[in-house]
């Protein structure tokens, strides 16, 4: 696919747009439809598209493997620690009212942070899933049942010898 000019050009245009849209969905989530889950998936799809069009190696170059774990864990921690923030400030876990002097503003801030954590984790998970499964293709031969049967026969023949 790397050789197809149309796809390459379209992808180059599309990828920034996809990412921008993801950011919109992410940060508009507390006003309208959207939020971390959707944004995370959209954001990840940009990287997946990149990898599909320009190859796995280039894709890895843009999003190195070590980002995966950091993204996943970081997102969870942002979520959790935002909740803990409410606890530290004297209210129950996940109470965002106290995050700012104005309760409403505090709730906005809290949900923004939480959604950001969700988005980060989801994006990282999605990219990781793609690379994990795609990276295995070299080893993976999906066998039909008859194929497996043949292998078994040859294996048992070998054993007999």
């Amino acid at each position: 696919m790397q050789d197809d000019v149309v796809i390459r050009v379209v992808a180059k245009v599309m990828i920034p747009a996809v990412m921008l849209f993801a950011l919109y969905v992410q940060f508009h989530g507390d006003y309208g439809p959207g939020g971390g889950f959707q944004a995370g998936v959209i954001f990840a799809s940009a990287f997946v598209l990149n990898a599909v069009v320009f190859g796995l190696n280039k894709g890895r170059h843009v999003w190195p493997a070590r980002y995966n774990l950091m993204g996943i864990c970081g997102g969870v921690l942002i979520y959790g620690l935002t909740g803990v923030g409410g606890m530290v400030l004297g209210e129950n876990f996940l109470n965002f009212n106290v995050l700012s002097s104005d309760p409403i503003a505090g709730q906005h801030l809290g949900i923004l942070l939480v959604e950001f954590g969700v988005g980060l984790t989801v994006a990282a998970v999605m990219v990781m899933l793609f690379f994990t499964f795609a990276g295995r293709t070299a080893h993976l031969r999906l066998l039909s049942k008859s194929d497996a049967h043949e292998r078994k026969i040859s294996a048992s023949k070998k054993r007999r010898k």
Partner: peptide, 17 residues
């Protein structure tokens, strides 16, 4: 993920095999 690992170590993903 499990299926991939199973394929790698058993060479099949059929229960019976």
């Amino acid at each position: 993920a499990l299926i991939i690992r199973i394929q790698e170590s058993f060479g099949t993903i059929e229960d019976d095999d």
